[in-house]
Design a protein around this nucleic acid. Structure first.
Lengths: 115, 115
DNA sequence: TCAACACATCGATAGATGTCAATATGGAAG
DNA sequence: CTTCCATATTGACATCTATCGATGTGTTGA
């Protein structure tokens, strides 16, 4: 607890016990990465605006190809932000509120940690 | 409001009025992108754990080069998540709670939008 | 069984990003 | 003025990612 190097005294507390652990950071970063794309954010907002949303309603408003939309929904799903259910011909997407809530609380931790 | 194409009737509401606008999506995605990196998340957690944090305490715990740390702090700052103040030899970093709060509310919008 | 359709996967390509060593910048101290 | 030190910037490189066309997969309906 007592710094050996005098330099530490100049810069304040070098303690890093409360630093976010590397594995946790990697996982959290992955979820944020899923949100770090304008197309995916708009996709998510469309899916969230209805209780359930059919894939057939995603392609047109975003003006992207079918394979691109598929790529993005897969990424959001891999991050746990949406889930898809294949019903009949189409896949129906739904948001996962728990994952959004978890993200919010991870931001709150950062916020609350300061005085 | 009345769908012209019978196909619309099969897939539910194709209305996209409430879709996140493209410029807003681009901006929001930029902020999330700043959080989409494990090193930056750990950086942020260190900065948030103290009231103010000197750059000289960031390099060692993250095991990254000086230029890499500088690169990351610059990205967090560009996203409005932290601010730096040059005082004496060192730069002192502080988180911006308002920006974190804004992010939280943007997630809340997605969450609340659904029934 | 077969044709049509929704969605996933593959291959390719252009652009973005993390990382570091080297160098530049700019303030502090002598 | 000059030296030293903390930080920013540059250049280079490897990796990742968004995008699309083409193709594969599996289900629907005739």
């Amino acid at each position: 607890m007592v710094p050996d190097d005098p330099a530490d005294l100049l810069c304040g507390d070098p303690i890093t016990e409360h630093t976010l652990a590397e594995p946790d950071a990697v996982e959290l970063a992955g979820v944020f990465a899923a949100l770090a794309d304008p197309v995916r954010l708009r996709l998510l907002s469309i899916i969230a605006s209805n209780d359930e949303t059919c894939s057939c309603n995603l392609e047109a408003p975003l003006a992207k190809s079918q394979s691109t939309i598929s790529h993005h929904t897969a990424k959001l799903a891999a991050a746990g932000l949406i889930v898809g259910e294949r019903r009949g011909r189409w896949t129906w997407w739904r948001v996962v509120p728990e994952q959004l809530a978890a993200l919010q609380s991870s931001l709150r931790v950062v916020q609350d940690h300061q005085a």
